[in-house]
Design a protein around this nucleic acid. Structure first.
Length: 211
DNA sequence: ATTTTCAAT
């Protein structure tokens, strides 16, 4: 049973290489997506599923996930019997890269017509977000508008992923150098991206006034 | 100081 489950888990080296939140992520030509799916089956009870995916055959991992979604979440999209309610799900993603502009837009569209799905998104690194006017930045704002909570992964998130998705064989999660600093830097960057400009202007104004 | 990015060779 353990051995069977192990094959579904991420090898330690793969996780560490692809999720490392280093400034210059040379060679990460793959993106991994670890997910947790929770289904609301009653007023209180939740069922639970988890796993991981990576991009394949030129298909970004987010869109790959959308393809698997109906199998993963029965009753999410179908219309069911007349008068029957759709099933509600909460999904959490932990992605090694944040989504590209196209994936963000496709996701936002999908979520717009699937109000019974809540998506929480943790990312290790920000994908093509250096330019002030990058389409990827715009895409992240679109996702926020679609109700997605986007957060940069911190120590506790890497730790949780290690415990949940990695074939760790009893080994403890060993944070790499600068994990915390990198996470803080990226979180600030993401906040600046998601923050409406007015707030930023106000903050500067307050600073000028010494308030 | 500078470096990369869901590849393409």
């Amino acid at each position: 049973m353990i051995a069977k489950l192990d094959s579904m888990l991420l090898p330690r080296k793969k996780f560490l290489y692809h999720y490392k939140n280093v400034r210059w992520a040379r060679g990460r030509h793959e993106t991994y997506l670890c997910f947790v799916v929770k289904k609301r089956v009653g007023p209180d009870s939740l069922s639970f599923d988890f796993g991981h995916l990576r991009n394949r055959n030129g298909c970004h991992v987010e869109l790959l996930f959308l393809r698997y979604l109906s199998a993963l979440c029965p009753g999410l999209c179908g219309y069911g019997a007349p008068g029957e309610r759709r099933v509600s799900y909460s999904i959490t993603w932990f992605c090694s890269w944040s989504p590209c502009a196209n994936c963000s837009s496709r996701l936002a569209q999908f979520l717009g017509r699937t109000p019974n799905l809540r998506l929480r998104l943790f990312v290790s690194r920000l994908y093509f977000c250096d330019m002030e006017d990058s389409r990827e930045r715009e895409g992240l704002r679109l996702l926020k508008k679609a109700g997605v909570h986007i957060t940069v992964m911190s120590y506790k998130d890497f730790f949780y992923c290690w415990e949940t998705f990695v074939a760790r064989q009893q080994s403890k999660f060993k944070p790499w150098d600068d994990l915390h600093q990198n996470s803080v830097r990226l979180a600030r960057k993401l906040n600046r991206i998601l923050q409406p400009c007015e707030t930023e202007d106000l903050r500067d104004a307050f600073k000028l006034l010494g308030l």
